[in-house]
Every structure is written in C-alpha cells, then in structure tokens.
Design a binder for these strands. Structure first.
Lengths: 218, 218
DNA sequence: CTCACAATCTTGACATCGTCAACGTTCCAT
DNA sequence: ATGGAACGTTGACGATGTCAAGATTGTGAG
C-alpha cells in the first residue's frame, strides 16, 4: 500500500531492521493469521505473533490492548473476507434468487474450508469481543447478506415478516452446520455419497432448508 | 457408587484428607467438568482441576498422560450423555419415525444448551484425541443413533443407500448448526420469531432437512 | 506376618505464556 | 532545534504444562 512507510521492514531491502517497524499493526495481523493457521485457536500465542513480525514480545501492546484485542480485529477482517466469499459464489450463481441463496451457503462453506482456524475463531471462540465496533459491524454485514438473500427469494423483508426470518434461521443453521462439521472432519462419509460432486450435494442440502412453499404463520 | 473407596475424600467425613485420594480419577473428571463449565474450553486449566480435586498440581499425571488426555476422556463421557439426551427426546416422541428423528435433533440441541462448554469441547476443539478408543466408540454411538433414526424413517439402511445417507448428512448439519449457533448466542432473534415456542420452530427447521419425498439418486 | 515393590501423591524445577513497568529510540510539530 | 508523543525493548511477575525426584501407602509373594 504505502511504499514509504513499509519500507525497511520485510520489504525489498531489509537493511538491518530499523528501530521503528513502520507498519507493525498490519504486520501483526498478518502474523496473527499465520500463527492461527499453523497452531490453531488453542495454540495461538501473542509472543509467537511478535516473533513472526520480528519484534520484541511486548511490542504488540502498542497496537493492541491485549491478545484478545488482536484476535478481535483479526476476526473482524475475517468477516470481511467471509462476506466476499459469499458474494463471489452469488456472482457466479446468476439471477435466480434460490440459486443465489444457495450460492451464499456455498460461499459460507468455501470460506470455512479455506480458513478453518479463522472460521473457528469467528464462530467457536470466546476470545474475540463482539461488542467491539469493527467486529460488530462486519459480523452484522455478513448476517445482512443472508437476510437480503432470503428477502430476494421470498419477496418480503425478513426483518418484518416472521416466516421469512425463520427461513433465514433455517438456511443459516444448515450452511453453518455443514461448514462446521466439514472442517472438523466429522463428515468423511461425504466423499462416498456425493458422486464426486460434493458441492452439488451441499447445494441440495442447503436448498432443502428453504422449501419452495414458505411455511405458514408469518 | 462405592462408599468404601470414596470414603475419606470429598465424602461425608473428610478426616484430614488421606495421602491417597482413593478415587482421584473420577474426582478429576468431575473437577474437569466444573473447570470447563466455569472457565470454558479456552480457560481450562489442568492445575485448576487439581486444585478442585484437592490434590497437588502434578497428581493428575498418574491418571491421565497429560491435559489433553483428561479432556479426551471428558469428551467421551460427554458423548455418552449426549446420546442419552437424544434418546430421552425420542422416548417422548412416540412411534412416528419422523417425530423420532426430530426428537433426536431436539435432544442434540438440549444437550448443547445444557452443556455449552462440553459441547464445544466435543465439536469445536482439537484437544480431545478422537483416535482414543473410548472417545472413538462413544462418538460412533452418537452417529449411529442418527443413522438409525433416518433408517427408521426411510425404511432403508443409510450405510448402503446413498440417498438415505444424504438425509443423515442433512439432518445432522441442520441440528448441529442450530445447536452451535444457539449456544454462541448468534440467534438472539429466535425469540422474536418463535411465537414463544422455540422448540416448535427448531422442530420445523429440523424437519425441513429431510423432506417427505426422498431425494433421487440413491 | 513382613517386606519389597508398585501405585499414588508431593515438592521442586524448567521453559513458556500474557501482562506490566521502566526505559531507550525515533518522529514530528512547534 | 527541541521537547513531547509515538513506538519498540528489556526485565520482571505470576501462572501454566510437564518432567524428575522423593515421600507415602497399598499389596501380593514368601
């Protein structure tokens, strides 16, 4: 991004590592993701991040209040990429609202499989603080994408029509359950029943969660 | 269970705590569950378990190889209770195969809400070793209950009929997603759309996952 | 019965972790 | 230029998991 600021760090010419890193905050976020990917949420270490970024163990404190604050920010950027993954699948899904909703679900699974540790951090850890503004809004955006997808399918706003919000809950639970079980390797038998096209199976299962006929009681 | 062996411990007469605990292994498992419940998977501490059991920090090593081994055993007994929770709902579901499958799902959710930290340990942690025999078989039993429920509904064995195994995957993913999102407090909006009967909504969502007409391609 | 061995528990040590306080270094506005 | 603010380092503290060594108790062979 900024060539001047991130000059002497891990850029082209590491001329003896200047005292000031230049872009330590971003470097720490990258380091944190590596740490997370390699050690998992439960093996994550703040000192490990500092080492990866090439700074002393106490340096991160000047950019993140504590380890959880770093993980909170990492989860926030994770939700940003999460939304992007869902949008990507929707873009290639065409105009049919059902296919677009299914696409959101496939993107959900894409992201989980591509970023297992990050997904765990975002959905199965108590360390990120969801009251922090950035994370709160990014997570809300992800939820919003799902709500919009159901809205397009049902033609009503789930925020005001109960039956539609029930569809949101149903689709979300199904996609989330698939993603979570897949990345914890609990669905090894999937390979044997998917006829070599696992995504078609995922799509079928997600599609079931929102029947053609909206359920009554809205 | 055994009054003679668990005598001097935390039982009736704590006469100066004998050098040998008498039933430390079981006491550690109970302590571990308390520790897990109060501190969560990420705050779990082996030394904390030892303190709760009233022994020194190194005592657990004589009963469990390391902290993960203790968590592995705890997860195993957790799966035992997990199966019991599903059976309990099935027992009160009557004879209709669909209601019994839904019952299994409701039991799944019951257990998750009643034992959030334990559920997390069982499904979202890499610390338990699923290659350990006890845990492996208990987890397989839980899976077996689900398979049997689908078998009863479809009238065929999912282990040999692909379409039925797809129903297993679908029902499991849905129940699991619901449970996981509920206990991470991501579905607060459920209260507003469930008309005061959340379980009926859970049942509806689970039921969607296995349509009346089996999908083709089995 | 006894007595040596095995099982059980304790104490102490080590490396590592998150956090804090104190201090050095560099940047930048005045 | 210079002094305060921002940024980074060193050192320390208590806590953790694990290991090694010692203390205590149960137990089976004689």
């Amino acid at each position: 991004m900024d060539d001047r600021k991130s000059a002497g760090a891990e850029a082209a010419k590491p001329r003896e590592a200047p005292y000031h890193h230049g872009d330590l905050r971003e470097a720490l976020l990258r380091a944190a993701e590596s740490e997370l990917t390699e050690k998992g949420v439960e093996g994550f270490t703040l000192r490990g991040c500092a080492r990866r970024a090439g700074v002393s163990h106490a340096a991160p404190a000047h950019h993140f209040r504590d380890a959880n604050a770093l993980l909170t920010e990492l989860a926030a950027v994770g939700f940003g990429r999460f939304v992007a993954a869902m949008r990507a699948r929707q873009d290639q899904a065409g105009d049919d609202p059902r296919q677009r909703l299914v696409g959101a679900g496939l993107g959900y699974i894409d992201f989980a499989r591509a970023n297992p540790a990050l997904f765990r951090l975002m959905f199965s850890s108590f360390r990120p603080d969801f009251e922090t503004l950035h994370l709160k809004t990014e997570a809300a955006d992800a939820f919003g994408l799902l709500v919009d997808s159901v809205a397009a399918l049902r033609g009503v706003d789930p925020r005001t029509v109960r039956s539609a919000m029930r569809d949101v809950a149903s689709a979300w639970a199904t996609a989330h359950g698939l993603a979570d079980l897949l990345l914890s390797d609990r669905m090894a038998f999937m390979d044997e029943i998917s006829d070599g096209r696992p995504e078609a199976l995922y799509a079928d299962i997600i599609s079931r969660s929102v029947p053609d006929r909206p359920a009554g009681g809205g």
